[in-house]
């Protein structure tokens, strides 16, 4: 009995290789790899600073940026700027989702709805939201509405198209099965199309959110008043490069946080899906 067990080859004999097509890696590896890339990034930056590859005034060292961030938060009310920016992104992006989810699903389900809206949506998708800033500044002044509008216009057209395409990809057999089980067209929409497409809607939103941050910063830089972008433009006037970099750092961290949040929501809401990622 025990002899037999000894003759079973141990699993460790199959060596783990660094480069294996499409195979999962242990969590410890992911963490190690993720930290490594950042260590190299900050390391190179620090070395560049120490060696004086660029004047210290336009390339401060990483610790100086951290110090600047600390001072910004403690002494200059930066948390308020961060809060303002986050609030704008959330409101503008939520509005974009609220419009694009129903519209995209209806356009993907019914050719008539697509035929009506798509000419408009396709055209607007090619207009960069930044190109509308001069117009919006004239119409809406420099208040909150202009920033939220730019954010909204930057995201909404792409979201509609993405959600429409995902809706079209819902398997016809699922819809036809529901029809032969007695579903009305409205019931098919609510009990088949919507549940089938909602994981993809959440994924599309996660991908578009990154683009939304771009439009937010553009809006804040142009209509300089409050927010992370406005703080960065103020710092530019006094050549406070460390503060500008602290702003970039915060935007990156916030982006990462929102991304993780979306992934978590996706995993919790759609746990019934086949693990594919």
């Amino acid at each position: 009995m025990s002899e037999y067990q000894e003759s079973v080859p141990s699993r460790s004999r199959r060596r783990r290789r660094w480069f294996e097509y499409k195979s999962q890696i242990p969590v410890s590896w992911s963490i190690f790899l993720g930290i490594s890339i950042w260590a190299i990034f900050f390391g190179l930056w620090h070395i560049a600073n120490l060696r004086g590859w660029a004047p210290a005034i336009i390339l401060p060292a990483p610790p100086e940026v951290i110090t600047a961030l600390y001072e910004l938060i403690v002494e200059k009310g930066f948390l308020y700027d961060i809060w303002t920016s986050v609030w704008r992104v959330v409101v503008g992006f939520a509005a974009a989702c609220a419009v694009s989810a129903p519209l995209g699903v209806l356009m993907g389900s019914f050719k008539t709805v697509e035929g009506f809206f798509n000419p408009l949506v396709s055209a607007w998708r090619y207009v960069p939201a930044a190109a509308l800033i001069p117009l919006l500044l004239m119409w809406l002044g420099t208040g909150e509405l202009v920033k939220i509008s730019i954010l909204f216009l930057g995201a909404v057209w792409f979201l509609i198209t993405l959600i429409m395409d995902h809706t079209k990809a819902v398997r016809a057999e699922l819809i036809e099965t529901a029809l032969t089980l007695g579903a009305t067209r409205k019931q098919v929409l609510m009990t088949v199309v919507l549940p089938a497409v909602s994981p993809d809607i959440v994924t599309s939103a996660r991908q578009m959110l990154a683009a939304s941050w771009t439009y937010l910063v553009i809006a804040e830089i142009t209509a300089q008043t409050t927010g992370i972008g406005a703080m960065m433009m103020r710092s530019r006037r006094f050549i406070h490069v460390d503060e500008i970099m602290a702003g970039i750092l915060v935007i990156g961290l916030l982006g990462l946080m929102f991304d993780l949040l979306f992934r978590l929501v996706h995993r919790l809401m759609f746990s019934y899906l086949e693990e594919s990622e």
Binding site: R171, L174, E176, A178, L181, T191, P195
Partner: peptide, 30 residues
């Protein structure tokens, strides 16, 4: 189409967001 003629396809058509019992109850729920 109507519930008096139920159709079963070659490809799998279980609704992935419903468990077995909810899948079987689908038509009754409608």
């Amino acid at each position: 189409p109507g519930p008096d003629r139920g159709m079963i396809f070659q490809t799998y058509t279980s609704f992935p967001w419903l468990n077995v019992q909810q899948n079987v109850e689908y038509g009754l729920r409608l």
